[in-house]
Simulated scan of single mutants.
Amino acid sequence: MNSQLRVSDFLKSGEAFHLARASIDPRRPKGLIERDFPILLWLQNGRMRLYLEETRLDMVEGDVVFLRQSDAHALQARADETLAVMLVLDPALIDGIILRHPGLEARYFWATSREPAMVHRDMRQLAALNQAALRLDRSRRDAHEAEAFLLPFLATLRDGTNQLPPDAPDWLAIACAASEDPKVFREGAAGFARAAGRAHPHVSRTARRYLGKSPSEIVNSNRMAYAARRLTSTSDSLAEIAADCGIPNLSHFHKLFRAHHGMTPQRYRKAHQRDLVQPG
C-alpha cells in the first residue's frame, strides 16, 4: 500500500528545503511513497535499489537521482551501511528555476522521460557535493541558499552533450537526455535517432550543427561513462560490461574506453580500487 507525504510535513512557512541523511532499510518495501514535492537524492555509501511505479533502478555510491513530484518511490539497501542523502525541495523553487533558466528544460527535475534523470559523481565529485550539502545544512533555509547550492551543482553536470544553444530544437535536448539511459545507448546512433523521433540523417546533421558531435560520438561518450561506473562499482567481467554497453566486440570496446579515459579498462579498475584503499 502506498503512503503519501506532503511538502508541509517537512518545510515550515518560508523554508525552501530540508536536508536529511538516512540509513536505508535492507527489507523490501511494501509500497511506494507518493509526494507533492521533488527530491534530490544521492547515495553516499553502499548500494541501493530505487523502486518506481514501472521499474526499479540499482544505485551505487555516487549516483544522484532527480525525483520529480510524479515519481512515487521506495528505497531498499543492497549492502551493509547504506547511507543516502535526501534534499526535499519546495516545488515553487523548482518551478521558478526553470522559468529563469530554460536551458535546463527536459533535464534533471524537468526531464520528460519515463524514468527520473540519474547522473554519477566520482569520489572527488561526491566529496564536493557532500561538502556543499554540509554548507547548505548550516545555512538559512530560504530559496536563495537553495539556489546557491542547486545552480552550481547543475552547472557541473553540463557537458558537451547538453550545452545546447537557445535555438536548438527541443527534440535534440530530449534525445541527449534519453541517450544516457542504457536502454537507449545500447542501440547506438539508431537509439539516439529513435529517441529524437526524427530521421537519422536529419538528426545527424542537427547534432553536428549544435553540438559539433555525431549521434555515435554522443552515444559512445555515454557508453564509456556507464562502463567506468560498472568497472569501479561491480566485479562484472569486461565481456558483461561491454555487452551491456551494446558493444559485444571486446576489441572495439577496449579501443573506445582507452580513447575516452586514457587507459585500458583493466588499468582503470585497478587504479580506482587502489584509490579506495589509499585515497589521494
Rank of each mutant, 00 (worst) to 15 (best):
A106R: 10
A106H: 09
R107D: 09
Y108E: 13
F109E: 14
W110S: 15
A111T: 15
T112Q: 14
S113P: 00
R114G: 01
E115Q: 12
A117C: 09
V119A: 05
V119T: 08
V119L: 11
H120C: 06
R121W: 02
M123S: 11
R124C: 05
L126Q: 10
L126M: 14
A127F: 01
N130P: 00
D137L: 13
R140E: 13
D142A: 09
D142M: 12
H144F: 09
A146G: 04
A148D: 14
A148I: 02
L151Q: 05
P152C: 14
A155E: 05
T156A: 08
T156L: 10
L157E: 08
D159W: 04
G160Q: 09
G160T: 08
T161N: 13
T161S: 15
T161R: 14
T161M: 11
Q163K: 12
Q163D: 09
Q163N: 06
L164C: 05
P165R: 01
P165E: 05
P166I: 11
P169T: 01
D170E: 15
A173K: 12
A173S: 13
A175G: 04
A175S: 08
C176L: 14
A178T: 07
S179A: 14
D181T: 05
V184A: 06
V184N: 06
F185D: 14
R186K: 13
R186C: 02
R186A: 11
E187P: 06
E187W: 10
A189S: 11
G191T: 10
G191A: 07
R194N: 08
R194Q: 08
A196P: 00
R198Y: 04
R198H: 11
A199Y: 09
H200D: 13
P201T: 06
H202P: 00
S204W: 03
S204F: 01
R205F: 04
T206C: 10
T206G: 02
R208P: 00
R208V: 03
R209E: 12
G212Y: 01
G212C: 06
S214W: 02
P215Q: 06
P215I: 04
E217N: 07
N220V: 10
S221V: 03
N222L: 14
M224Y: 07
Y226T: 12
A228T: 05
R229E: 14
T232K: 04
S233I: 06
S237E: 10
L238I: 10
